[in-house]
Design a protein around this nucleic acid. Structure first.
Lengths: 200, 200, 200, 200
DNA sequence: TATGAATGAGTCTTCATTCAT
DNA sequence: AATGAATGAAGACTCATTCAT
């Protein structure tokens, strides 16, 4: 990546961070294609020129944001399950905590998630970061259940189910849907799927 | 919507249809932002001007395409389940057909899927059509199980789980994942969830 | 060359021609790098967009101008010598006419020549057009002297010498130089070089 | 020229020299418009800011380089002829040496030549330096033949003819041209032109 | 109804130059 | 005397949309 340099001074680092934060926020709120670099520069109170000293191009800003925020989206799952000594008795509680944390995280970064999904569909690099983070998350969770066959696949399904539930609750706004029931049902399904797992 | 009129002549109707068909196809194949109205007009063998007689703007073409095709593209499970007399005995078979159909549909229209997801994230109207179609799909399935409580939510979860499985198989390309197992596990979970359902 | 179309309507043809004429003139007067496409569009009273319908890019305009005008610069040589029945007696007169015409042409397109030289140094395509036109000119002149060995090289030297004389007279503005003498000397040298030529 | 100062410290003088040397070299190699001041500063291991303490602007660097180097680059025939005691007997040999030297110089500094020509066409100051250098070169040669009328013009023609020959050989790459012949012919013409000269 | 040429605001990006340190 | 981060005007180019015909 030529012609792109890293900020050294503290104030410059803050500037770069500001570009990521505000740029990514704008892109998520208004849509990647509806925000120009001039907009970002203006909102971040920097010159347009400086953007191209710290980022290859506009997409590079989005990718930087993605790296930061997609981890935050994945983090609740990790946080809840990782390094926990999971037993038949505490699994339900741990699982419920994880789901609640995930919902909270999705709520906080509502717009980010929409745009991230959109971009991950359109751009391979964004997609790769997503996948990579997801795999990392899976990998970490898997360590809790070392001896089980297909635990990788099960954890993946788990992540997807929780994610789906979050989307449902945070975005879909179907009227007349009983979201409490959906949450219970999801937990129930996960517990059923993991039944043969936490027993070893 | 001023200045937009409906075609009256048969040949004009065909023209409008061609714009939707070819325009939507192009947008799905190459991405909404990578197809220009001039491209669409050229591909559809019409003048660029005529587009703005039948459509408000570029997005309007995509929305028209979405209305027409998203149901078929995104909810192919409808065909498999609708109007089937589901019993304890045939449910497994019907479910497996549905899953296979869904995977097939996703595979065939991979790019369309991606773009539809992307646009539904970006544009509220597209998103609304999606939601609406999803609700319609749910509604139709629900009719098969009239007396059950929370059947709507369960069907919704079902759709999501199948959809997720399809994405997994069609896009994600995780190496070393046992997709056959994931499919079996998904079916198993659905059957477990629907257990109390097909008994009535 | 995709996305570039040829004008069909008469008024459009005029528009394209205007872009070449005015654009090339501006570039020659102010220097290629000191004229923007917006300048050209404004001066030619067209929109910036139309430029990119008829030309691949900014350089393409210059190249179009080059094709037109480098021929005009070469033309005097051709005009003077081509299809003439050259004899020992009339050679001097023909040569003098040629030189005078060449000087006149260079004077008319003074700025064009400067910029053409500059660009032909910088851009290979422009250089190629130059070379090609020069070769064409040489080829045509050569036909007047079919049987002579190395006539091609001699004609080439001839063209260079006349060209140099023109530059000297039109641009250099050396004070205290006797241009009349230089002209006479050049003619004398050419006649000496061609001595063994027009005799066959 | 406000805000431009001369370096006083030895290390500063070296810095300025380095900017000229490396900047001019880069501009000649890659083209004036394809080298940025940041490039030059980086290559010369100085800060970008310092450039504007010793030079008015970017062009000023090129001009400084031109002043220093163009004489050597463009008029290498000086070395061959200057201070030589030219006689009827040794003229041919001296001339051939000069031509060979000129060809060698052009070959070695091919890109520099192109860029210098281009810039001298674009910028009046560069052009003036060129002219001045050329006149100096002429002047020096002329001293060898003090009593002859129009010797200045003849030397000028001589320089042009050698220069042309060099361009022909170094750049043009006409296929099927007999360059050895062209060289001989050029020498022959020069000797013919100078005939009445070395006799005094 | 239909055409397709034309528009021009808007995009991303570069780089000569400045200025706080 | 020197740094190099920062500026922002300006550039080439695109494309949704309009309009004369």
């Amino acid at each position: 990546m030529p012609n792109v340099r890293e900020p050294i001074k503290e104030s410059s680092k803050e500037k770069k961070q500001k570009i990521i934060d505000i740029g990514f926020k704008l892109m998520c709120e208004k849509g990647y294609h509806n925000v120009s670099c001039v907009d970002i520069a203006a909102s971040a109170n920097v010159s347009t020129g400086i953007i191209y000293q710290y980022f290859k191009d506009k997409l590079d800003i989005f990718i930087a944001g993605t790296k930061l925020y997609s981890e935050k989206l994945m983090f609740p799952m990790l946080n809840a399950l990782e390094n926990k000594n999971i037993t038949k008795e505490n699994f339900d509680k741990i699982l419920r905590n994880m789901v609640d944390d995930a919902i909270k995280a999705h709520t906080l970064t509502k717009n980010a998630h929409k745009e991230l999904m959109s971009m991950s569909c359109l751009d391979n690099e964004v997609f790769a970061i997503f996948n990579c983070n997801e795999e990392d998350a899976t990998e970490k969770l898997v360590r809790n259940f070392p001896k089980v066959k297909n635990i990788k696949e099960k954890v993946h399904l788990l992540i997807n189910m929780v994610d789906n539930l979050c989307h449902e609750i945070v975005y879909h706004k179907h009227e007349n849907y009983d979201y409490a029931f959906m949450k219970e049902q999801t937990i129930k399904l996960i517990e059923y799927m993991m039944e043969d797992v936490y027993e070893n």
